[in-house]
Every structure is written in structure tokens, then in C-alpha cells.
Write a protein that binds this DNA or RNA. Sequence first.
DNA 1: GAGGTACAGCGTACGGAATACACAGTACCG
DNA 2: CGGTACTGTGTATTCCGTACGCTGTACCTC
Lengths: 250, 250
Amino acid sequence: MTKRALPPVVARMWGRETESRHGPRPSLDLARIVDAAIGIADSEGLAGVRMSSVAARVGMATMSLYRYVGSKDELLTVMADAATPEPPALDGRPWRDYLADWTQANRNFLVDRPWLLSLAHRTPPTGPRTLRWLDRALAALAGTELDLGQRINIASTLTGYAATQASLTHSMITVAAATTSAAGDGSITGLADYGDILGQVLDPEDYPELTAAVRSHAFGTAEKWIDDADFTFGLDLLLDGIQALIARRG
Amino acid sequence: MTKRALPPVVARMWGRETESRHGPRPSLDLARIVDAAIGIADSEGLAGVRMSSVAARVGMATMSLYRYVGSKDELLTVMADAATPEPPALDGRPWRDYLADWTQANRNFLVDRPWLLSLAHRTPPTGPRTLRWLDRALAALAGTELDLGQRINIASTLTGYAATQASLTHSMITVAAATTSAAGDGSITGLADYGDILGQVLDPEDYPELTAAVRSHAFGTAEKWIDDADFTFGLDLLLDGIQALIARRG
DNA sequence: GAGGTACAGCGTACGGAATACACAGTACCG
DNA sequence: CGGTACTGTGTATTCCGTACGCTGTACCTC
């Protein structure tokens, strides 16, 4: 029985705080702090999330936050889970329909909240929301002959795909924050620029295929990355692979 | 002709510095600084990479680094490219063989240098190494009927898969740095613990499938994540999907 | 009901890290 | 041979995260 204490972050995400009976009751709860932090991240990006700014937003002193959160890092971890929406409902749909929906929804909220991408690499999923996504994906595959390991693997692969696509979409769409303020400075501002840059930099001898791609404007249109068509294309690749596997097993 | 100036980072990565003739010659070059930074990241992690520590490592004053790099952020970007190895050689192999190799190699260097994962979300690929990976993947698909957009899409999907798997592998393997130093503290230390935590936290009503997975120890064995079998499983899914697509086109 | 106790909110202070700025020395230019 | 542009660097500023200790309060126990 290796039943150790939960890591404090995890405990907090699940409301497993040991209720204390002494002293004044807290005037806030973790949720309100996390919401404030999420609000800031949405409007100013992750960089705007400072202990001081969050505290100001909830009307407390900076140091008071530490009664609710062990560290800024912890706060970010909790934020990452809380900012994740609920997964779509299964409603008895066939696995392929559902997983397509699931993956797309996954990508969509990552595009809406690009800062979530930067928080993705912290921990394996341990929050209620994130785990619900995993659970639902497993549920969709429940009717198949796949074993549990395979189902988990499929879920992670799809999440990974969603994240990759969201990240690409985001970095391509973004009019990058011009760090140097001079007009016409050298910041990468959009997609057209990306193709430009590659064109300027690539040696055709060394990068023959890429050069060809740039020349035929394969990176040219910004819509390409916002459009669902491209996303769906890759997704279908994955789903086809899964379907073939299931067929083999059945 | 929208031929703007290259972003400074990009210029530096490609050695497109405007050679200056006045003044003393630089006593170092960017490469040595980047190597030092990579060395630190390898041994202490990204957190160990401070302008001061890097400077110490190359035997210069902190502020001297700013003669070679515009900002720490720029340094990290250049590091990310420089730490990427060369892609495997194509050698006329069929696309599927090569891409399997390519993806696996991609995952492997990410597992070796987990800090690269945290730098992945900064920019679309603009460095010589990263772009060479892309070029080689496109080259492998050159014989197929797929159009360029599709080839690029496939390459990103595979990179994404490699990154996802590497990230999972890493977070599972890691004996997490115990931030609190007390023994038996609550940090997530490994895989067994991960299953433990889920078990403690999940409500079977709300997470039926996950609960079942935990109970049957689907998260239980650490080898599962280090082992190639699992990686190859998902990879084959993808490749099958691609193969089906190519067959359809041909 | 009185005192003790543990905990909430918060002001102050410290330490680490990035980086603006100014200055000294140096190599090449005319 | 002065001027100039650039290198290396010390100093100082600014911005954060957070350790610590103090004050007041609500509940518990006697």
C-alpha cells in the first residue's frame, strides 16, 4: 500500500484541502484567484500574470495569495487545468465521430488560449478537467477490441496532434509582439513573412525540397493555417490508422 | 518584392551578420556561447541557464554576452536550433522506412534533451537544423503523388507526435525534482506514483473509464513508457494513415 | 466565559536575474 | 595621426518571487 500524501498542487485542484477550524475564515477561495489569473493570461498573455497583478485583481495584497497557493508555479499548474473546458459529450456516438470532435475541440481551446501551450509540458495530467478529457476519449473507444494501453496511447496521440496544430496555427497567425518598437523592424509578423524569410535564408543546394516548397508558395496563404481543412486532413490520417488497427483486431 | 530585413535572431542563426571592420575583433563567436548554454541546459536544465552562468562558462563578463545576442530570449532560440542534431540520411530509402526512422530519431533527441520541449513553442522553425529536418521529410515524400501542402502537413504531424511522446516519456520517467526538500514530501516522483495519485483522486462515477484503467494498472509499469513498443505502435497508426492516403492518390 | 491557539491578511525586506548605460581600450579607416 | 566604430566590462536600475514576522480574529478547551 503505497498511499502517500498527495502533492499539494493536486490536492488543491481537487479541493482536498484539510479544512481548518481555527482562526478567521478565508475571505476568498482558490477558484477566484485562479479565475483572476486566467483573465489576465487571456488579455495580456502569460507574461502579465504576476503575483502582484493577480493579487491586485482580486483586491488583496500580493503576499496574501500565498495562503491559497504554495508558489506561482503551483498557481500556473492549477490555471492550466481550470482553463481547460469540459470535453464534448459522447452521446453514444461512434468512436470515430466522437474522437474527431474531441480532437478538434481540443485544438480549438488551445488556439483560443495559446498560453495553455506553454503550460503543457509541466506535468502529466492530474487535474479534474484534463483527466475528464482523457476519460471521455477512453469511453469512446470502450466498444472496441483495443486494450487499455492502446486506448491511452491513442488519446495521447490525438492530444499531441491537437497541440501541434494549435501551436502551428498560433505562431503563424500571430502578429508577433514587436519587441523592438521601431517600425519595419525585423520581427516575424505573419505568414507571408515566414515564406519570405525562408526564401532569403535557404541554400537551394542544401535544402532542395524546402526551397521548392517556398517557391511554389506552399507557406503563402494565411488562411491555410486557420482553415480547418488542413487540420482535418491530418486528423483523418490518424483516424484512418486507428480504424485500420481496430479492423485488424476485430 | 517584400524583402524586409531578417529578424536579428534568424540572421544570427545563419551567420548572416554584417561583418564589421572597425574595432577589435570579437574574442569569441556566437557558437561558443551557444555551446556553453547548451552544456548548462544539459547538466542543470533550462533553469540553470542564466546570462551570468553562461558568461562564467565562457570566461566573460555577463554583459559581454549582449555583444553576441540581443537578449536571453534570442539566446534560447538559437540554442534550440543548435541543440537539434542532423536528421538521419535518406539514402534512397522508401518513404515509410525513412519517416519511421526520422520520427524515432526526433523523439530520441527530445528525450535526451527534454529542455528542448520547453523551447518548442516559441517560433515556427527558422534555424538551419530544424529546417533540415523538415527538408528531409519532404524529400522522403518526393516520389509520392501528394501535394506540397500535404507533405508539410505530414511532417508537422510526425514532429508533433515525436514531441508528444517525448514529453510523456520524460514526465513519466523523471524523478521529479523535489522542490520541498523534506523526505517523503508530496512531489510526483515517478510512474507508480502517478497511478497512485489518480487512484486517490478519481471519483469512479465521474471518471469510469479512467478508474478502470488505473485499477488494471494500465499506468503501472515504467518500462511501458521507455519502451519503443508503445511509441512504434502510435507511429504505425500514423504511417498507416499516410500510406492509405498515398494509395488513394496513386 | 476566559484564555490559548492556529490561521487569515499583509508590510517589509531580501535576493536573484535581466538588462540599460556609460566608459575605457583597441584596431582599422582616411 | 586623429577619428571612429566596435569590444569588453563595471555599475546601477528595475522587476519579480517569496521568506519572515506582526496583528488581529474565530474557534476550541477548560
